[in-house]
Nucleic acid binder design. Structure first.
Lengths: 130, 130
DNA sequence: GCTTGACCTTCCAGTTACTGGAATCCCTAT
DNA sequence: ATAGGGATTCCAGTAACTGGAAGGTCAAGC
């Protein structure tokens, strides 16, 4: 299977797949013409990566997950820990963003948004408690 | 005022302040010894930047906001538009993260997390609908 | 057999917003 | 004179791609 076909099926751009090969996440063999010849196993790995990335796992965590996936003797506890840690990070990020959202949204509401210079947004950013 | 004092007051590391100078966000004059001599106006700018960054604005948006802040003839509509666009992006990010969180959290719940290899998390990542 | 266009390849550079580290200089106090 | 704690510059690295250039390959149509 050629790269564009794999890309379409896995939902990952060809460039990214080449990058994944470069950093050792996949290692498709080559045809005599130099083209990458993806096997089913490569395809499956890439689909796995696509989903893991969609859940926000870092590349390094994806690498670990992939290794666990391929290790028939893994302990599910290892997987779970990784996922839980990641979940915690996501929750922290959400909390940060929600705080930004709340502040920002109240500022936006308070701003007239007309052609006058008076602006609560800039005022709030400007009056620092030094 | 020396850089470490400014850093402390603005809540920005000295390295970051030097970086901000490098990209033209601030331009403190120099003492005869080559040290940056921050004026009050520099201090205020940095405090402004610190808050804008805390609200998640990109550096480029901060640059724009700073320019609007200093422009007495700005229209508040320009500020508001920028803030609203940013708010929209934040909301989108939150939505993405919430989806990740929900998926991840249900997977984590479903996983025993013991020493056996059976794992719904890996299973879910693995069974791609090709 | 040749051209055309769609693929494929590699390599280099750029993105965001810093951050770490090395080498060197400056100031103050003992 | 020396020791420490700052300050300076410059170089490199981070995460995860992405864009673009230069060039090789393949299948189809004439």
């Amino acid at each position: 299977m050629n790269i564009s076909e794999v890309a379409k099926r896995a939902g990952i751009p060809p460039k990214t797949i080449r990058y994944y090969e470069e950093i050792g996440l996949v290692a498709p063999p080559r045809d005599t013409n130099g083209y990458r010849a993806f096997r089913d196993s490569d395809m499956h790995k890439l689909a796995f990566l696509s989903r893991a990335r969609a859940l926000g796992f870092t590349i390094e965590n994806c690498r670990t997950l992939l290794a666990l996936w391929e290790d028939q003797d893994r302990a599910s506890a290892d997987v779970r820990r990784l996922a839980r840690d990641h979940l915690t990070e996501i929750e922290a990020k959400i909390a940060d963003l929600e705080e930004m959202r709340d502040t920002l949204s109240s500022l936006v509401k308070a701003c007239a948004g007309d052609d006058r210079p008076d602006c609560p947004i800039l005022k709030s950013l400007g009056d620092a408690p030094l």
